[in-house]
């Protein structure tokens, strides 16, 4: 069992083992997480999302460099997809960040999505709590390469950066519902490519239109998401990007929006834990209950239809205390 004291002191071995336990879904890990939870809530959590190959990992590598120059301690959670066939994964995001591997004030953890479809893994939030309690000032979370609908990160991060590259999508793509609504900062990476200004223009137009649409429904102070041009391979625009994220965090704090974010996050976290724990009970019920097994048999012998069987089991056998 990892030592809580060691984790709070920032010991990477202890923190890493704790995250491993959480990822394995061990119930005793939750007992430990409860002890860490009161020590979390200080880190600034930045999400980086966008399609595969737009440069998310390389941008994070650059952001680590900038934040380290400011003497901030930086943690990274990099999520890559699990194979739908074998359940295995190749986690290759940290490959782009390896120059920071030996910096004791940088902690990089790769995670496989393990069947989650929202761009993160089930244990990403748990891992962020551990890193937060370890004392990291900034936690950068890189999602699975995302398309249009994977925006779980927006419910976890204080600030979500959406990475695009020039030459993808016109004005109507930019106003579609989904991931593009969720950004706090928009990044056009690979800005040495042609059509970069068209991409910036399309995003700026979209932000302007969204702000018009929201004026009535959101009376609270409004953050207008900036569009930042970067070239991650050369490090161009990355200082500005880091400043933009930090000024968004300042904005949230200044208008007491971090508390609101925290309340929303806690509700969502509670609901997702509730589902996990309920599911765990149901799994163990299915493995151990003879009554359940007899229902299963009756379905297989066509004595009962699956719909009535499911209703019957829920109503008569699964009692959630």
């Amino acid at each position: 069992m990892p030592e809580i004291v060691a984790i709070l002191q920032g010991n990477q071995r202890a923190g890493a083992r704790m995250i491993r336990l959480l990822e394995q879904g061990k119930l005793e890990a939750l007992t430990l997480l409860k002890q860490l939870y009161p020590h979390s809530g200080n880190a600034f959590i930045i999400g980086i999302t966008g399609s595969p190959g737009v440069g998310k990992s390389t941008l994070i590598d650059d952001l680590i460099t900038v934040f380290r120059k400011q003497s901030k301690r930086v943690a990274v959670i990099a999520v890559d997809p699990s194979s739908p066939f074998s359940g295995g994964a190749i986690l290759g995001d940290r490959l782009r960040m390896q120059r920071h591997a030996t910096d004791k004030n940088v902690f990089i953890r790769s995670m496989a999505s393990r069947g989650q479809t929202g761009g993160l893994s089930r244990a990403t939030k748990d891992a962020a709590i551990v890193m937060d309690a370890m004392g990291y000032d900034i936690i950068l979370i890189e999602t699975v390469g995302a398309g249009q609908g994977e925006f779980d990160i927006a419910t976890l991060a204080h600030s979500t950066g959406i990475v695009r590259i020039p030459g993808t999508g016109d004005g109507i793509q930019a106003v579609k519902a989904g991931i593009l609504e969720t950004g706090d900062v928009y990044i056009v990476n690979k800005c040495d490519r042609p059509d970069v200004d068209a991409s910036v223009h399309a995003l700026t137009m979209m932000i302007g239109m969204q702000n018009m649409g929201r004026q009535t429904s959101h009376p609270s102070p409004k953050w207008t998401p900036p569009v930042v041009k970067t070239n991650a391979l050369k490090g161009t625009g990355v200082d500005e990007l880091a400043d933009t994220f930090l000024s968004h965090f300042d904005f949230l704090k200044k208008h007491n929006l971090t508390d609101q974010t925290k309340r929303n996050q806690e509700t969502l976290y509670f609901k997702s834990l509730l589902k996990d724990l309920t599911l765990a009970k149901i799994h163990s019920f299915m493995e151990t209950s003879p009554a359940y097994k007899s229902v299963l048999k009756r379905i297989q012998t066509h004595e009962m239809d699956p719909i009535s069987a499911a209703e019957h089991v829920v109503n008569t056998m699964i009692i959630l205390k």
């Binding site: 071995r13 066939f85 074998s86 295995g88 994964a89 986690l91 490959l95 591997a101 030996t102 990089i108």
Partner: peptide, 28 residues
């Protein structure tokens, strides 16, 4: 290894032993 259901962290070329140690630590 991926196809055998394992999770593989690929750290790439030219790793120093120190990088390997730190990576193994952080990734548990």
């Amino acid at each position: 290894l991926r196809d055998a259901g394992m999770e593989v962290i690929y750290s790439g070329l030219h790793q120093t032993l120190n990088q390997i140690i730190q990576t193994a630590t952080q990734e548990a």
